[in-house]
Structure formats: C-alpha cells, structure tokens
Amino acid sequence: MAAYILRRFVSTIAVMAMVGIFIFLLLRLARGDPAAMIAGRNAAPQLIASIREHLGLNDPMPVQFMRWVRDMLGGDFGTSIFAGRPVLDLISQRLEPTLSLSILTMILSVSVGVSFGILAAWRSGGLLDRLLAAFSAVGYSVPVFVIGYFLIYFFAIRTHWLPVQGYIPLNQGLGPWFVHLILPTVALGLGYIAFIARVTRASMLEVLSEDYMRTAAAKGASSYAMLFHHALKNAGVPILTVIGISFAYLIGGVVLTETVFNIPGIGRLVVDAINNRDYPIIQSVLILTSGLYVLINLTVDLAYTLIDPRIRY
C-alpha cells in the first residue's frame, strides 16, 4: 500500500509538471496582452509598450518559463500582475467560499442523491421510480444558471426569505454563512443529485438482481437490511467513484454558480484572471487544481479498500 501511495505521489508531480508546461505554452500562444489590459482600452500605445517591458513580457518565452519554474520551485507562485499581491494570498482568500460551496453541495447531493437512488431501485418501475426519474431528467438537463435565477426570483426577490447574492465568511457566524449558501448549494446540487441518484439506482438494481439477494430475501431479511446491509455496500464502488469524480469536478466547475450568486471563489478568480491575462494566477490555480484532482482520485482509490475487501494495492 505504501509503495502504491508513493508511486501515485510521484505520478502526481509528473502530471502537475505536464499541466504546467501545457498551460504556460497555451497562455503565451493565445492572443492577449496583460499590458493593454492594465493600461485600459483608450491608452496610448507608448504606455502599453513600456508596461510590457516593465513586466518582462518582451523577454523570450524560454526565459519567462525558466523564471516561472525557478520561482515555483522556491515556493513562490508569483504575484498577480493586476492586484500586485502574492498569488497564494489571493487563492487562499478565494478557497474558503469555493470549498464551502463544494462541500455543502456534496453533502446535499450525496445524502439526497443516494437516498433517491435507493428509493427508485427499491420501487423500480413504480410511480415513485418514475417521479424520481423525471426529477433526475430535469435536474440533470436544466442549466445551473436557469435554476439559479428561478431560485433568486422566488426565494429572494418575491419572498425575501434568502439573500440574492454574496458570501459571508464562516468566522462571521455560522448562520449568515449558511443562509448565503442555501440557494447556490441547491442550484448547484440539483444536477449532482440527479447524477448520483441515476448511478445509485442502476448500481442498486444490478446488485438487487444478484442470487445472494434472493437468498437473503428467502432467509427472511427485512427490506431495510437487504437494501442497506447487503445491496448498498456491494453497489458502493461505482457510487463512490461517481462521488469522487463529482467532487473533483466541483472544485473546478463551480464558476457558473459563483458568477450567478456573486460568490468570490476560485472559479471567478480564474475567469477574471483569464479575461485580464493575469498569467501568474491562471498558471498557479490550474497547477494546484490539477494536483487536487489527482489527490481526490487517489483518496477515492484508497477508499475502495474500505468498501470492498477484495481490492488490494
């Protein structure tokens, strides 16, 4: 197991290095000029040229790349071209909203999605199954911004029950923090609930048709015991895989929700950085996100051993 984990860590570094090179080249080859963005749209060309020079953007690409690698190896992820602050400061400032939203969404999605999936499998072909199938189809196909606007209209503008937008840090109170995250969590979570419910249902149905389930039923096992002790545990590996992928996707995929609900998270940080061509932020966030992706996948792989004793590394 230890050797496996070590190998995976080494491969993580290799993946991050590949991502780094790819991102660096992509950004430099894509059209865009941070100096023009700093100077503003009606700036004199001479001002833009001198800002480019000052930022070192006229240096040859290999020189810029080596400078970036050298700084990264020294633990310096660079300074935002625009904000003038260390990139890690900006990322850490944006991490809490994104993690809060992602974790709450996963709690909601897993608890509701797995429950719906189990219920649908248990009442397969019945009215409840069809209702849940319809819910899943809608939840999976309606874009998050449409759901977001509906929620804002009904729960914020019409009833004033919940705030339209914004994020309150956890250290300013659990209540305000939670209240501001309800609508974004529901908007973002609906798609994941639908996805997890469908996978759980399919996985449960497969297990429920196994011989040992008939044996359990013949031995007089209760529905509860059959569903939760026998079926769910054996259906767990694909469900866990989906949850892992969903969580990893969430970390980098919350940008639309953050935009609709004005949550200052990592997603918006990256989008703004891309619009401004703030290279240090884009490079650092993507490198760190790729590392996080790999680590989440590793965690999921290791969690398989807890569910299925046959899996060994």
């Binding site: 911004f145 606007y149 804002i152 209209y153 914020a156 503008i157 004033h160 705030p163 339209v164 937008q165 914004g166 935009t259 609709v260 609900f261 004005n262 918006r268």
Partner: peptide
Amino acid sequence: ENITDQQTAVAALQSGE
C-alpha cells in the same frame, strides 16, 4: 461589489442588498 452577472446585480438592487 463586482457582481459580474447583470441579472443578479439588478436582483440585488431590487432586494435592497
């Protein structure tokens, strides 16, 4: 505030935020 989504910005204005 930098509310990039204009629909949300106007909704925030309507709700008094």
